[in-house]
């Protein structure tokens, strides 16, 4: 292990573990049932649940949006894991104890846990409620970029809607790009994956609940993620191309590009950023090599440019394919 690596490891470990002694001062957001439900309140007395459960809530909240929950897995009475399953806490399973909220009228009514953008409930408390049941689908949530950016579950999901926007490619992509603006712009570029047509979703490649991979990819590396669909490029080949074996992102911009093949730059220039052997790879091919002009070396520039000959740029399995031409 290098000195620099050891230093960084030590720094990260120190950052994390130096905080543990302060743990006794933590105001737990989730642990302990009653306090979790009323985070803004400073009451020492634990909040109480209602006496009749959802019947109490629906007496007021009988609008279509609220009642739509019964078209979702959250409103499934025969599923013991559902908030409306036998013995469960119904509305208060997510919204927390609501007795005080139900009893008080007018000003000063205590809030229950609210979800979504603009809600009074802190994001960490909202998410802790969801993770009570959904811990299994979000193994890596806590250390994810989304958790670190205070994204709440309800920023993306609508737990009351019969059709959660994240379950459909078109609405999912809209939801993701409402924050990921650069990807929205790149997604409109001429060479891109078919997200605009909703034939792919962001979750085709990314795990928004977190993963132990870079950029929250669904597989451990970029290459493993890409080859889940592009399995023909997986190899191993008799002759490999070093950057391909390491990371598809070395040459491609997967969110979209102005260059064919979602390449980072046009050929032959992209190839010449890494290959300048004696002879044709090292020559500067100018526009005079385009059809109709004076130059004679057009195959180096047009159509597939370098790939016109070195067509097996992702790897060749031909015994005579060492130059990736076969």
């Amino acid at each position: 292990m290098s000195t620099a690596l050891r230093r960084t490891a030590a720094l990260v470990a120190a950052l994390l573990f130096s905080a543990l002694p302060f743990a006794g001062h933590v105001a737990e957001a989730k642990d302990g049932a009653a306090p979790a439900a009323t985070p803004p309140a400073a009451s020492a007395k634990p909040a109480a649940y209602s006496r009749k459960g959802a019947d109490t809530c629906i007496a007021c909240h009988d609008d279509k949006v609220s009642l739509a929950v019964f078209r979702t897995p959250h409103g499934a009475p025969k599923d013991p894991r559902s908030p409306f399953g036998a013995g469960q806490l119904q509305c208060e399973a997510c919204h927390g104890p609501g007795d005080a909220h139900a009893r008080h009228k007018g000003k000063g009514r205590p809030d229950v846990i609210e979800f979504g953008r603009g809600a009074n409930t802190p994001v960490s408390v909202q998410n802790a409620q969801c993770l009570t049941c959904h811990n299994g689908t979000a193994n890596h949530w806590a250390a994810s970029a989304h958790a670190g950016s205070e994204v709440s579950c309800a920023d993306c999901h609508d737990s009351h809607a019969a059709h959660d926007p994240m379950k459909r490619a078109s609405t999912q992509n809209e939801t993701c790009t409402s924050c990921h603006k650069v990807q929205h712009t790149q997604g409109l570029m001429p060479f891109r994956h078919p997200l605009e047509e909703a034939r792919m979703a962001c979750t085709s490649c990314h795990a928004p609940h977190g993963s132990n991979a870079p950029a929250q990819l669904i597989r451990a590396t970029t290459t493993e993620t890409c080859t889940t669909c592009h399995a023909e490029l997986r190899g191993p080949f008799a002759w490999e191309h070093q950057p391909v074996a390491e990371d598809c992102g070395n040459c491609h911009n997967p969110h979209g590009s102005t260059n064919p093949g979602m390449l980072k730059a046009r050929g032959p220039f992209l190839c010449q950023q890494c290959h300048q052997a004696s002879g044709h790879p090292s020559i500067s091919f100018g526009p005079n090599n385009l059809p109709g002009r004076a130059g004679q070396q057009q195959a180096y520039v047009v159509a597939g440019n370098c790939l016109n000959c070195h067509t097996q740029v992702h790897g060749s399995n031909h015994p005579s394919g060492s130059k990736l031409m076969r």
Binding site: L16, L20, V26, A143, A147, G148, N212, A220
Partner: peptide, 23 residues
């Protein structure tokens, strides 16, 4: 191929969160 990862997140005091990952 082999992949190993560990991630730890903490909220030791109100308002402070710490995260670290090793892959």
């Amino acid at each position: 191929v082999a992949h190993y990862g560990l991630a730890l997140s903490l909220q030791p005091i109100q308002g402070l969160s710490l995260r670290g990952t090793v892959r």
